[in-house]
Amino acid sequence: MGARFAWDASWASSGSSFLASPCATACTAVLGLAAAVALVLFAPPALAAEAPGNFHPTPISATPNRQDGLAAFAQLERVLRHPRCLNCHVPDSPLQGDFSRLHYPPVQRGVDGKGVAPLQCATCHSTKNSPLPHAPPGLETDGKPGWHMPPANMKMNWVGLRGAALCKVFREPKTNGNRSLAMLEQHMLTDHLVAWGWSPGPGRALPPLDKAAFDEQVRTWIRNGAPCDATEPLRKSVGTTKAEAARDVADHLRALASNDQHLPRSQP
C-alpha cells in the first residue's frame, strides 16, 4: 500500500485488511459507501487532535543540503530527548517530571496508550492543566480528557536513542506511527499533545527550543531531504498528508462500492 495508506497505527491495521479483502458478492454498494462515509466522518482520534485546516507540507528542496538537514535534526533531537517528550516515548510504563522518574501511580500503557482500566490516564489527567504545581497535566480532545502515550502496537520508544538511531526511528513510518514525512511534519506542527510540551503547566521545564524554532527546524530538516546520517540517500518525497490519505481511502472505498453494484448478488 505504501505511503498512500500510511496512517495512525491502530487504524491502519484494520483499514488495510479491509481494503485487502474486497467485498464478496453479497456485500452491497451500500455497505461500501457506508464504510467510506464512516471512515471520513469518524476519523481516528489522532486526526481530531491535529488541526487539518491550513497545513501545507514543506516540500523537499530541489537542491537539498544534507549538512543543513543534519544540523536541523541535531536541534530537533534536543527537544525529542527532553522529558516533556521522552517521558511517554518509553518501552513500557511512562515516566514523569523533569527528572524522568518512574510514574506514580504505577500505570500501564494499555492497548491504546490510554492506560489499563480502572487506572487510566484520564483518571488523573483531566481536560486541562491544573494551576497547582505537581498536579498531573491535562489536555482536551473533543471535549474529553485526551492524555495518552503511544499505543502498544507502536510504542515509538526513544529511550537510549541518539543521533542517527533516534532520527531513523522518528522518521520511518514503521516506527513513527505510520506517518509519512508530511504527516510527521503535521504531527509536530499541529498536534495539541505535542504543543502541550510548550504549555506544560507550572513547575515543568520547557523544551530547549521554543515552539516556533522547533517548527522551523522540522521544516528545515524535511526541506533538506530529512537526512539521518552522512551516507543514506536523501528523501525525495514527503508522501501524503493525512487529509490526502483520507481522501484516497474514501475514493478507494467508493470505487469498491461502485464495482460491487455490478457484481451478481449471492443467492439466498
Binding site: A122, T123, C124, S126, S130, P133, P136, G138
Partner: peptide
C-alpha cells in the same frame, strides 16, 4: 492535585479525580 485519590468519583462509569 489528583495524587491521593480521596476525591475519586465516577464519570460515565470511569474513575476520575474530582479535584482536577
Amino acid at each position: 492535585i489528583a495524587v491521593c485519590g480521596a476525591c475519586t468519583v465516577h464519570i460515565d462509569g470511569e474513575q476520575r479525580r474530582a479535584c482536577v
